[in-house]
Design a protein around this nucleic acid. Structure first.
Length: 623
DNA sequence: GCAAGGTC
C-alpha cells in the first residue's frame, strides 16, 4: 500500500479509551498532551508531534476513541409499536440509523476534531466489528469534513514496534467486513423483532398466564435454549443398562490395591460368568509387567475470556456473567488486562518480568512470584487462538480487592497467570499388570516429584496414589476376586460451564456475549438454575421445552433452535468479507429463508400451541 | 414489550 500524501494533521480513533491511551503513550513517547472530551467522562484526546518517514518534519497526531459501536438502528415510529403493523411487515420495513443518547458527545468530539485534520487513521480492533466501527466513525467524520482522507492502522498487539509500524504503514479500511457486519445487524433486528412479536402474541392469546411476558426469539438465545433442552430430553430418554465386571483387590504392605479389568466391563452376563468362573478355578495371579515412566501434568494455557468463564464458573461457583462483570470492573480499575479476548498465546516480545515483579508483595503467592523471578520462570505455552487485538487475560497490577466476586476473580486470574509462567508438574507413574486365568488386570500409582505450578494453582489436583513394589513373575492369590455389577448412568444436566463450552464450539455468541445469552434465557424463564451442592445445573422450564418441541415439530429441516441457522449467517458473512457474495444478495437470500419460516410457523401455529398444552398437562406448572 | 454486537 503506497503511503498517503503527506498529511499535516492526523486524527487517530480507537475503539475504546484504553487503546487510545496506549497508542498515545507509545507514539507520543510519554509527552502527549491530554484534554478531556466535553460531555463524557470516559474519553480523552491526546495530541503530540510524530514523525512519519520519509518526511523529516513531524506532523501533529491527535488520538481519541469511541465506545464501541456508534450508531443505533431501529424501525421507524410506524413500525416500532407492537400493534402498529403485522409482524411480517418488519422483514421489509425501513430501518433508521440514529445516535444513542450516550454516544452524542462521543460523536460531537470526533466531528469537531475531524474539521481540522486531513487524515483519519482508524485504530479499532482488527476484527470484523472493528472494521464496522471504523466505517461508522468515517461516516461521521466525512459529515464534518468531506475532504478528510481515511486509512486504517493494522496492529496485532499493543507493543511499541507494532504500533509504530501500524502508524507508518496504514492500509485501507476493509469495507467488505463492515458490510458483513451490516448484514448481521439488519438480519438479527428484522428476524428477532418479527418472530418475537409473532410468537409472543400467539402464545399470549392461547395462554392467559403468559400475559405481559415477552417470548423473545433471537438467533443466539434460541440455540442456547436448544442445547439445554437437548440435554434434558437425553436424560429423560436414558435407560440404564446393567453391566458386569470382575473386581480384584490385593492387600500388600498395609495397602489395598485395586486392579481394573482390561475388558473394563461387559454387558453380557453369561460371558462375564464364564470368565469369572475361570478366575475362580485358577485364582493365582502372575505379575506380567511392571513399568515406571516419568509423567507430568501440564500447566494451564494463557487465559481467554471463554476459558475464564468456563473454568471460573466451575471453580469459583459464580455465573459466567458475574465473572465477566467482575473482570470488567477490575480492568477499569487497572488491575487486569482487557477481559474480552480470544487469544491464548502471548506475543513473542511480551514482557513478563515487571508483571510478575508486582505480585511479589502478595501474602499468598508472593513467594511463588519471587521464585519465578529467581529463575523458575518458563514462557507460557502457546494455545491455538489469536484475535490479533488483545493479549491473554493477566494481572497488570497488584491489588487486594477485599472480599467478594472481584477478589475471587482477581485471585483466579493471577494464580492462573503465575501458573502459566511456571513449569509443568513432574512425577513418575508406575503401572503393574497381572494375569489371572488369562484375564488381564492392571493398576497404576503416581509419585509427584516436583509440584511446580501446582503450588500456586490449587484449582488443579494431581494426587499421588502410592503402590507397593511388585516384581515381574511374582505370584499371589488376590484377597478379593468377585463378579460385580453396576448400571450405566445418565449424563448430568448441563452446568453453566458446559453450556459456555458448547456455545463456543458451535459459534453461538462471542466471548463478550455468551454469558449474556445464558442470562437472557434464564431471564425469559426458558431455563431455570438448579442448585445442587456447590454446582448450578440448568434445566429447561415447561415453556422452554414447549418452544423447542413446537418449533422442531413445525418441521423445519433447520429448526430455529438448532445452531445451524446462525452458522449459516456466519458463513455468509465470511463470503461477504471474502468478496465472493454481495451483501445485497445475501440479505435477500437470508430474508427469503426467514420469511418462509415465518409463514409456515403462522400456518402451523396450532402445533406449537398443542405441544405447549400437552407439555403443561404433564408438568402442571408452566414454569 | 423485539436481536446481537461493540464498550462503559
Amino acid at each position: 500500500m503506497p503511503i498517503h500524501p503527506h498529511p499535516r494533521r492526523v486524527l487517530c480513533v480507537a475503539e475504546k479509551p484504553s487503546i487510545a491511551k496506549e497508542i498515545a503513550r507509545i507514539l507520543g513517547e510519554g509527552q502527549a498532551n491530554m484534554t478531556p472530551a466535553a460531555g463524557t467522562k470516559y474519553i480523552k484526546n491526546y495530541t503530540f508531534p510524530y514523525k512519519l518517514p520519509p518526511h523529516p518534519q513531524p506532523v501533529q497526531f491527535t488520538v481519541t476513541a469511541v465506545l464501541g459501536h456508534v450508531n443505533d438502528r431501529d424501525f421507524g415510529d410506524e413500525h416500532r409499536k407492537w400493534h402498529s403493523c403485522p409482524p411480517f411487515a418488519l422483514f421489509d420495513a425501513e430501518i433508521y440509523e440514529s445516535l444513542s443518547k450516550d454516544n452524542k458527545p462521543v460523536v460531537t468530539n470526533i466531528k469537531r476534531l475531524a474539521r481540522d485534520h486531513d487524515l483519519l487513521l482508524i485504530w479499532t480492533d482488527c476484527d470484523r466489528e472493528g472494521e464496522h466501527i471504523g466505517a461508522e466513525v468515517l461516516g461521521h467524520c466525512r459529515q464534518a469534513n468531506p475532504r478528510i482522507n481515511c486509512l486504517r492502522a493494522k496492529f496485532s498487539a499493543i507493543i511499541p514496534a507494532q504500533i509504530h509500524n501500524a502508524a507508518r504503514n496504514p492500509i485501507a479500511l476493509d469495507m467488505l467486513s463492515a458490510a458483513a457486519v451490516d448484514l448481521r445487524i439488519e438480519l438479527d433486528l428484522r428476524t428477532g423483532a418479527a418472530i418475537t412479536r409473532l410468537q409472543t402474541m400467539a402464545l399470549q392469546a392461547a395462554f392467559p398466564e403468559l400475559d405481559k411476558k415477552v417470548i423473545s426469539y433471537g438467533p443466539c438465545q434460541f440455540p442456547t435454549l436448544g442445547f439445554v433442552v437437548a440435554r434434558y430430553l437425553h436424560i429423560q430418554a436414558f435407560a440404564a443398562e446393567e453391566f458386569w465386571f470382575i473386581a480384584v483387590q490385593q492387600e500388600k504392605d498395609d495397602n489395598t490395591i485395586e486392579f481394573n479389568w482390561r475388558r473394563n466391563h461387559l454387558f453380557d452376563f453369561e460371558a462375564s460368568v464364564v470368565l469369572y468362573e475361570q478366575c475362580v478355578e485358577s485364582p493365582l495371579a502372575t505379575v506380567t509387567k511392571v513399568e515406571t515412566k516419568p509423567s507430568k501434568k501440564w500447566k494451564p494455557y494463557p487465559l481467554t475470556t471463554v476459558e475464564m468463564q468456563k473454568s471460573g464458573s466451575r471453580l469459583l461457583h459464580m455465573s459466567p456473567k458475574a465473572i465477566l462483570d467482575a473482570a470488567e470492573k477490575l480492568y477499569q480499575k487497572g488491575f487486569l488486562s482487557y477481559p474480552r479476548t480470544e487469544t491464548d498465546q502471548y506475543d513473542k516480545d511480551f514482557d513478563f518480568k515487571p508483571l510478575i515483579e508486582k505480585q511479589i508483595q502478595d501474602n499468598n503467592w508472593g513467594g511463588f512470584a519471587q521464585a519465578l523471578q529467581n529463575g523458575e520462570f518458563q514462557r507460557p505455552r502457546n494455545g491455538k487462538k489469536n484475535d490479533k487485538a488483545h493479549p491473554p487475560i493477566h494481572p497488570t497490577a497488584w491489588t487486594n480487592p477485599g472480599p467478594g466476586d472481584e477478589k475471587k476473580v482477581y485471585e483466579f486470574v493471577t494464580r492462573r497467570f503465575l501458573a502459566s509462567c511456571s513449569q509443568d508438574a513432574q512425577g513418575k507413574t508406575t503401572t503393574v499388570e497381572i494375569e489371572i486365568a488369562e484375564e488381564e488386570f492392571h493398576t497404576s500409582g503416581l509419585v509427584v516429584l516436583q509440584r511446580n505450578y501446582l503450588d500456586v494453582y490449587p484449582y488443579d489436583r494431581w494426587n499421588g496414589t502410592l503402590i507397593p513394589d511388585f516384581v515381574v513373575d511374582e505370584t499371589f492369590v488376590p484377597s478379593v476376586c468377585e463378579l460385580k455389577s453396576g448400571f450405566t448412568t445418565a449424563p448430568s444436566l448441563l452446568t453453566e460451564a458446559d453450556l459456555v463450552g458448547i456455545m463456543d464450539q458451535n459459534g453461538i455468541g462471542t466471548d463478550a456475549t455468551i454469558a449474556e445469552h445464558i442470562a437472557t434465557v434464564v431471564k425469559r424463564e426458558y431455563v431455570m438454575e438448579q442448585q445442587q451442592g456447590n454446582t448450578k445445573y440448568l434445566t429447561p422450564s415447561t415453556l422452554g421445552i414447549a418452544l423447542v418441541e413446537g418449533w422442531d415439530l413445525i418441521g423445519f429441516d433447520r429448526s430455529l433452535c438448532k445452531p445451524h441457522l446462525r452458522r449459516e449467517t456466519e458463513h455468509r458473512m465470511q463470503l461477504i468479507c471474502d468478496g465472493v457474495s454481495l451483501k445485497r444478495d445475501v440479505m435477500e437470500e437470508s430474508l427469503t429463508q426467514y420469511k418462509e419460516v415465518f409463514i409456515k410457523a403462522k400456518r402451523e401455529w396450532d402445533k406449537i400451541i398443542q405441544v405447549s398444552r400437552l407439555t403443561s398437562s404433564v408438568v402442571p406448572s408452566l414454569y
